[in-house]
């Protein structure tokens, strides 16, 4: 179904003391689209993501998945609903091999995790899946290396692989290119786009670098000081004066006097 709304937030709000990190954000994400959230540093993008994935509870508001309220669900249950989430800071199992990192991710949604006294080798489907994913993200040659020994760019790919392994419908990617050498960025973005188009997945992407998302996004939401500043297609966003001002810093200066 095209244009079906898969993920929706209603007046989502999160306060940290006096700071309103996310200010009544209502957002609709279309199924199968690549929806980017951009905004300057401190705009509340990551907090908004944490609310979506259930890492932190909202002060007010709701998160709906296909119309069903998932706001207060325990963290480990969101993955079972087909939501995979990556982090801005690389978040992997450092001493385990790349293969084992992804195999564990694949095993997570299977029904064999409480088999105490059979070898993991008796369940090869997770390992097979891990090899598929490693081929997809280009980590086959690094499969047997401990994850912590990988260079940063490869760790970002591993992070992506760990989300892909259970084949989620929705991917929440928090600055997947963070800390990457700029020449590696287009390659990773192309990979994300390929995954989204080939797998008919819904991808939500947080970025603070506007240029990165312009070419790949279907919809862009611009956040500023916790609230939605603008939303639209990449063309609309790049033509939007308010957005330009936000990025040039004028809005910052205006509000900096009254924090």
């Amino acid at each position: 179904m095209p244009n079906e709304i898969i993920l929706e937030t209603q007046n989502l709000r999160r306060e940290f003391g006096a700071l309103v990190a996310v200010d009544n954000v209502s957002l609709k994400v279309k199924a199968g689209s690549l929806h980017s959230i951009i905004g300057p540093n401190g705009a509340g993008k990551t907090t908004f993501f944490n609310l979506l994935s259930g890492n932190i509870p909202p002060t007010a508001g709701r998160v709906l998945l296909r119309g069903k309220d998932i706001t207060s669900l325990p963290l480990h249950k969101t993955a079972h609903l087909g939501i995979g989430r990556s982090f801005q800071i690389t978040n992997i199992f450092p001493t385990l091999t790349v293969l084992e990192n992804i195999r564990l991710a694949a095993q997570a949604l299977g029904k064999d995790s409480f088999r105490l006294f059979r070898s993991y080798r008796a369940f090869p489907k997770y390992e097979t899946r891990a090899w598929e994913v490693m081929e997809q993200v280009g980590l086959v040659n690094e499969a047997l290396l401990p994850a912590r020994t990988l260079p940063h760019g490869a760790q970002r790919k591993l992070e992506l692989g760990m989300i892909l392994a259970p084949d989620p419908e929705i991917l929440l990617l928090d600055e997947p290119t963070a800390g990457m050498a700029s020449e590696q960025v287009p390659e990773l973005m192309a990979l994300i786009q390929r995954i989204q188009e080939a797998g008919h997945k819904t991808v939500m992407l947080v970025e603070h670098n506007m240029n990165v998302v312009m070419s790949v996004s279907d919809t862009i939401t611009v956040m500023h000081h916790g609230a939605v500043l603008a939303e639209g297609s990449p063309a609309e966003i790049s033509a939007n004066e308010m957005v330009q001002t936000a990025y040039l810093g004028h809005l910052y200066e205006d509000t900096a006097v009254t924090p």
């Binding site: 994935s53 890492n55 325990p74 963290l75 480990h76 249950k77 969101t78 993955a79 079972h80 989430r85 978040n91 992997i92 199992f93 450092p94 001493t95 385990l96 564990l104 991710a105 997570a108 949604l109 995790s113 760990m162 259970p166």
Partner: peptide, 12 residues
């Protein structure tokens, strides 16, 4: 190794 990650993967 990383309990938070295990939770996010869907392990209770």
């Amino acid at each position: 190794e990383n309990e938070g990650r295990a939770l996010m993967l869907g392990y209770n």
